[in-house]
Simulated scan of single mutants.
Amino acid sequence: MAKSDASNRLPNVSAMQLKVCTDNENDWVEFIELCAISFQESAPFVRSHPDPVKRKAFLMKYIKHHYETELSNGRAGLACVKMQNAFGREEIIYGSCCQYGHGKRTESDQGPMRELDAIGWEKNEMEDEWLELQIHSKMPYIAEFLNVNIMHGVYHATLEEYKGKGIAKHYTVPAITVIFADGTRRGILDGAKPTIIYGVIDDYRALGLQKLAGYDEIYHFHNTHDKNYIKCINDSKEVNQNEGFNCVFLTCRELGGNTPDLINKFKKVFLMKSHI
C-alpha cells in the first residue's frame, strides 16, 4: 500500500464511540474549543480576521457566543466521536452539531468580541444578518408549508491530527442520524414527519466533503452586504472576489420519505419564498 493511502486510512473504528452529548456541558465546551481550532483557516474568518493571533482568540469567543445565543438549552443536538488519547483520556476527535428548527437569538455579552477585534466582529455580524435574512428565516415557513421537520447542520469539526483520514466522511451522516433520533425521543421533532437537514457552506473546501456525505447543492449565492441584494449564480458559478461574502451553498439532506421528491419540493418553495 502506498504511503499516501495508509495516511488517509480510517483509524481503528472499533476504538471509536459515537455518542449523543447534548446534555453534557463539558462536551459542549470541548467541542467549542475543537471548532475554534478547526476553523482557523476557514475563508470567512480569514477574511474578517486577517491577524491569526486575533483570529484564534476571537473564534473561541465567537463560537461560545453562538452557542449561548442560539444552541444552548436544548435548542441544538450534539453528537461526538470519542477515542482515548495517548494519556488514557477520552477526547472528542469529531463532533457534529444540529440546531432543531430555528428561533430567535437570546441576549449575550458582545463586549469581549468587540474588544478583541471590533472591525472583524462587525464583518461577522453583517454576514450573520445576511444569512439570517436570506436563508435561516425562511426555514420555519418551509417547514410548515411542506409539513416537515427542519434541522440546521451548524458545525462539523475534526481534531487536527485526525483530519484527512476519512473521519468526517464516515461519521457525518451517522452523527446527524443519532441527533435526529434523539430529537424525536425528546419530543422536539415529530417522528411521523420527514426531516430535512440543511447546511450553509461558506468555504469551498467544505463543499466536497458535504457532497460525499450525501448533501445536494441547492443554491449558490453572492452577497454584497446589501440586505436587499441577492444574486443566485447557479448557472455561471462565477466568483466575484470583490464581494463581501464570496460563496454560500445551501445544501440539503432528508431523513424519511421520498428523498428526490421532497428535495425538489424544498427547492421550489425556497425559491418561491426568496422572491416574495
Rank of each mutant, 00 (worst) to 15 (best):
Y155D: 02
Y141S: 02
G101E: 02
I119V: 15
I119R: 10
G103M: 05
Q99E: 15
E129Y: 06
K104C: 08
S137W: 11
N124S: 14
K104F: 11
W130E: 01
Q99V: 11
G153L: 15
Y162H: 11
E144L: 09
E127T: 07
I142S: 02
W130R: 03
E115K: 10
E127M: 12
E107T: 08
K138C: 08
S108Q: 09
Q110R: 13
Y141W: 08
G101W: 13
D109A: 05
N149D: 14
S108F: 10
I135E: 01
R114E: 13
Y162T: 06
E122I: 03
G120V: 07
M126H: 04
E161N: 12
D109T: 06
E107N: 07
G153R: 00
K123L: 14
A118W: 13
C98H: 05
Y155A: 02
A118V: 10
I119C: 05
G101R: 06
S137E: 11
G153D: 09
I119K: 15
E122S: 13
S137Y: 04
V154W: 04
I142M: 14
R105V: 02
K123E: 15
R114K: 12
Y155P: 00
H136L: 10
Y141R: 03
S108G: 10
T158Y: 03
Q134H: 15
H156T: 13
M151G: 01
V154I: 12
N149A: 09
T106W: 07
R105N: 12
L159M: 13
T158R: 04
I150R: 05
H102N: 11
F145V: 06
L133E: 05
Q134Y: 09
C97P: 01
V154D: 01
D128Q: 10
C98Q: 06
T158E: 08
G153W: 04
G103W: 08
G111D: 09
P140T: 03
S137P: 00
H102E: 11
E125S: 07
S137G: 03
T106P: 00
G111V: 12
V148D: 04
E129T: 06
C98V: 13
D117P: 02
E122R: 09
I150P: 05
M151H: 04
Y141G: 00
D128C: 10
F145N: 07
S137F: 11
V154G: 01
I135A: 05
C97E: 12
L146F: 04
E132Q: 11
S108E: 10
Y155V: 12
P140N: 07
S108H: 11
E161V: 13
E161L: 04
R114F: 14
D117N: 08
G111K: 15
W121A: 09
E132A: 06
A157D: 00
V154N: 04
N124K: 01
K138T: 02
Y162M: 10
